[in-house]
Design a protein around this nucleic acid. Structure first.
Lengths: 332, 332
DNA sequence: CTGAAAGCGCTTACAG
DNA sequence: CTGAAAGCGCTTACAG
């Protein structure tokens, strides 16, 4: 195993001290231009790069952010991570991606590892079973800011960046009203999830207020398969009427679309279809599904800004809600 | 910022030396049971965990694997990573996930960072524009084994774990023959990709050999959108005949399915549909698409085994091909 | 402008 | 069975 060049080697070759080399490399004002040039030249030549372990041991800082998500196979997280990485690169930080598999135990291990590595900050979408917020709050004691995104805890005073559930539901409901559709089947996710509540309530409220005559039926499904079953069993009573199906998430949409295809129905003729989505699944169908977008990349930008504030010393906890926008396919 | 406990603190509290604490914690045989117990008790109490930077600086080993992929929003990579993580956990390793965004420059930066961090090993699916294999081979000089998976270089003597392109194409072709379908439209990806060549050749060969009377037309598409366009323009001449569409990848499948839906056709009545896929997209349709599976998780297991051999000292480079299996939906 | 020295937290050969 | 000491590669206050 060949050894990487070190400050010492450069110093020896140039017959100067290690301190001088170290300073020259970071453009310390004390160093003479002459020395600075020589050192930097040789460093370049030898492809010198500081040993991050030594630097960290000395400085206690890592210039690394951690992003922790329950799952990777998710377009929303993917675009969130992309935007964090892009921003981070601009600031000279790198990004490590961790996957909790939606398991609070693994999540805790990751947290521990982040602490030991003294990452500069953590972006995290918590698991649906995370109860112990304590350990996250403790990170602050260690000087590691935590920004929650998407899946965030109930707890008030922490930094949270969320998708605008209400706004997305509002947009979808408005679109239904605009299209003058009298009957709506709303398919929502698990009742216990906070996003379900937020989306359901707003959706209902808008339809009741602005579309008084609309007949709304809502159901809940905890998985894609369940959404398929429910849709399948309910569709018969709607066929023939002018109606729309609203799916509150990609998971639900995937299941419901299968039922709709199975019944041989197609949008927008036989029914309208509209969803809240991160924008991947809607594009797989023809016509593309109309959806209110929950944008991971915008959330990423917002989260990163907040992180940089925290690092700069802001201790003020804040909840930021990102607005949604309607992307028209041809399904309604 | 509160400080984490160190060997020194434990040593002071117990009035023993740092060396003794260090040894006790790793069950060194020299240490008396008595001392061992006391040290481990206190360490437990203080939630001691060694500072990874210090350990690495000393030992030059990180117990960390890096997985580098072009993109995260990909079910195949997702399952590959999951299986690597699971195996790694069992061996006390952790896994860092890097995303190259299919950009060779970023890929090089990641490689550099892996070298500096002295990761224990790298699993990598290279970008489609990676030419400089040199830098990967150099990692060996640094004692860091590199296992290529899925997207691998042409270069012979390196460790490669690949999807069984030929076998997957073989399974798909066999299925078409079995279903007695006289006309086949084969839609393949970019001509320049090695997987395109492998899949195309085998597919053709099997149909020609075992299904002599089958009329096969093959086309190439470089993106989902292109696959949609091509399918759309070709479908009219096939309608009415008994035919099947074969899509060599998920990307192609997504585009072609859109065209098929657009023409109001549905499988398996109007046509047969069969694909090579990682198993996510086929489930979104009804009936589910029949496909030859390229399993990320199995590839992960194989890659991990190979990695452990390398770490154990094997310098023998090997190419491992994973076999595929047919998953029957109802689309053909 | 430059250098010697201390120290970050650990491991391990050496001595007792 | 235990400890003192060296050293991994770096940064930085202190001295000159």
């Amino acid at each position: 195993m060949r050894h990487s060049p070190t400050l010492k080697k450069i110093a020896e070759r140039l017959s100067v001290s290690i301190s001088t080399v170290s300073r020259a490399l970071k453009n310390h004002p004390d160093i003479s231009p002459e020395t600075g040039r020589k050192v930097k030249e040789l460093a370049e030549l030898l492809e010198y790069d500081p040993n991050p372990y030594a630097v960290n041991l000395r400085t206690h800082s890592s210039k690394e952010f951690a992003v922790v998500v329950p799952s990777l196979s998710n377009f929303f997280y993917h675009s969130f991570i992309s935007s964090i990485e892009e921003e981070a690169r601009n600031y000279g930080y790198s990004v490590i991606i961790y996957r909790s598999s939606n398991d609070p135990k693994i999540e805790q291990e990751i947290l521990k590892s982040c602490r030991h590595k003294r990452v500069s900050g953590i972006f995290i979408a918590i698991t649906s079973e995370t109860n112990d917020i304590e350990s996250f709050l403790k990170m602050d004691v260690h000087g590691i800011p935590v920004i929650f995104f998407d899946k965030v805890p109930q707890y008030e005073s922490c930094n949270k960046i969320c998708v605008g559930d209400e706004h997305a539901a509002f947009l979808a409901a408005k679109e239904i009203i605009k299209k003058d559709i009298p009957n709506v089947l709303g398919i929502f996710g698990d009742r216990n999830m906070s996003i379900t509540k937020a989306r359901l309530e707003k959706f209902k409220a808008v339809l009741q207020q602005d579309g008084q005559s609309i007949n709304l039926k809502t159901v809940h499904a905890r998985s894609s398969a369940e959404a398929e079953q429910i849709t399948l069993s309910l569709l018969p009573e709607w066929i023939g009427k002018k109606f729309a199906v609203f799916c509150m998430s990609d998971e639900i949409l995937a299941g419901s679309m299968k039922a709709i295809q199975r019944k041989g129905l197609s949008a927008p003729v036989d029914l309208g279809v509209i969803a809240i989505s991160d924008g991947m699944i809607p594009l797989l169908f023809y016509p593309e599904i109309t959806y209110a977008e929950t944008s991971g990349s915008k959330l990423g930008t917002l989260a990163f800004k907040r992180m940089m504030r925290c690092i700069a010393g802001s201790s003020f906890a804040q909840t930021i809600i990102d607005e949604s926008k309607l992307v028209a396919g041809g399904s309604i």
